[in-house]
């Protein structure tokens, strides 16, 4: 599926979905269906959020990276310098530990990591706690993502710096895992 630039209305709708996902970690939030039907849902967060003043990188898909850069005018940079990083498969530990976490004074500079997350029979279930979670909040991730989750937990161990993650599935469901959320295997 080819991508297309989002209208300001569509961009706002995607933004609202992502904001809702961060507000309620673990909640499955459906991104706008009409967009998910016509282009890769994984790219929607980038199409909505990056622009000529932000940087991004897609380390495992150069074609997708070039297409997003073309549509948004956003600059492609190295993983460590990127405001947004998209991974089409669960990222290895080294990558997660390499992305920017911001500083105590400028925690907003921490990277937003967008990760593909598909359902499998061998999915891991994570118990979530922290602001915005409910007592029963859970997150289901594919087994291959266990390294990613372990690295993510290390990356958020020294608040307020850290990273914020969205897990996106191919049907357009997004789940937020902000740095304030504690995730452990249940």
């Amino acid at each position: 599926m080819t991508l297309a630039a989002l209208s300001s209305r569509d961009s706002t709708m995607v933004f609202r979905s992502l904001l809702q996902a961060f507000s309620s970690p673990g909640e499955r939030v459906q991104m706008p269906a009409h967009l998910c039907d016509s282009m890769s849902p994984l790219a929607l967060p980038l199409l909505a959020l990056v622009d000529i003043e932000t940087t991004f990188c897609i380390p495992d898909d150069a074609d997708l990276e070039a297409e997003v850069a073309e549509l948004t005018g956003s600059k492609v940079v190295a993983v460590a310098d990127a405001n947004f990083v998209l991974c089409t498969t669960p990222p290895p530990q080294e990558l997660v530990l390499h992305v920017g976490r911001g500083t105590a004074l400028q925690p907003q500079l921490g990277c937003r990591l967008i990760v593909s997350n598909e359902s499998h029979e061998d999915n891991l279930t994570l118990r979530l706690s922290g602001p915005g979670t409910r007592p029963e909040s859970q997150l289901s991730v594919c087994a291959a993502a266990s390294d990613f989750i372990a690295a993510r937990n290390l990356a958020v161990a020294h608040p307020p710096s850290g990273i914020d993650c969205w897990l996106v599935s191919s049907d357009g469901v997004v789940v937020g895992l902000p740095r304030t959320t504690h995730a452990e295997q249940g």
Binding site: A48, L49, D51, I52, E53
Partner: peptide, 11 residues
């Protein structure tokens, strides 16, 4: 808040 959600296309 709305403004902050809009992408910047050009200067």
């Amino acid at each position: 808040a709305y403004r902050s959600t809009l992408p910047r296309f050009a200067y």
